[in-house]
Amino acid sequence: MTDFLKLTGKNIVVTGVANRKSVAWHIAKTLEEAGATVVYVVRSEARKESTAKLLADRQVLVCDVEYQDQIDKLRDDLTAQGITIHGLVHSMAFADYSEGMKPFHETTKAQFLQAVDISCFSLVKLSNALKDVFDPDASVVTISISTTTMASENYGFMAPIKAALDSSLAFLTKSFSSFSRVRFNAVGPSLLKTSASAGIPGYVDAYLFAEQVIPRKSAVTTQEAADVAVFLLSPRSSGIQAQNIAVDAGMSINYFDKDIIAGVLKHDS
């Protein structure tokens, strides 16, 4: 069967491509392979220049979601093209860890609110701005995490931000349902090898630990997360709404693996 995902000829806006390791890039190239037309949105002219080789011959627009006027310009640019948007990939997150990792209770108001604005509220702002450009059955997919209730020190204060992002899916679904059938879902991968994650203190050790906890003994790949996102963007997932689909290769079922327990107890003895 050809075009199983029914994505041929669909227009998908993909935000957040930074380099070849980006989740957004894996999603975008898979969409292209499935026959979709991708409109790329990056956060700055500098990022547009740094990705010029990677995104050669593709349409790339600039929008820093911290600024409403840039979101409005993105909407106007897409409207002027007269195209209908069948999907939106919201793949952006930022947290200010410039002072290093601190206990959660020492998070500053400025740090927290900036992270909420860029990593969570930007989904609301983009969805609202593009509502008249969306196809009535458009699919919006954001990138979350596999769990927001595990207090991992090396993730800083981002888990509560992602929890707000997950909750927003239900409320966007409800409010959009008064005039459309636009769907809002999230992909929640466990630890991935990306350029952004490489800068998080202690992340590499956590990644290596995840590889031991996952039953298959190998971590989730970025492509595996991207494949789920592409499915959620496709009409084939039309019955899935307001969900975070965890992509953790079974890590969450195996925290009490007997070999890991034995290793910890042996180390402590």
Score class of each variant (00 low, 15 high):
V247M: 10
A80M: 04
A56L: 08
M251Y: 05
H267Q: 10
K6D: 09
Y40N: 11
A229H: 04
Q81R: 14
G263A: 10
D132A: 11
S50V: 05
D69G: 00
D76V: 10
I253K: 12
D57T: 09
V124A: 14
T30W: 05
L78Y: 06
S50M: 08
L5T: 04
L74C: 13
I161Q: 09
V220N: 08
A163P: 09
D135V: 04
T30K: 15
E32P: 07
V141Q: 07
A110F: 08
Q81G: 09
S197L: 02
Y207A: 04
L232F: 00
K109N: 15
K29L: 04
D248V: 10
A170K: 15
I260D: 01
I253T: 12
N128H: 12
H86F: 02
K10M: 02
T142H: 06
N185E: 07
A229S: 09
F112N: 11
L165Y: 04
G35V: 06
H90Q: 11
M158I: 15
F4D: 01
E106Q: 14
K53G: 06
L74H: 13
R236E: 03
I145R: 15
A210W: 01
G9V: 07
V140Y: 03
V14M: 04
D227T: 15
Y67S: 00
D132R: 10
L88F: 06
Q111K: 13
A206P: 02
Q111M: 12
R216Q: 11
S44K: 03
D69T: 14
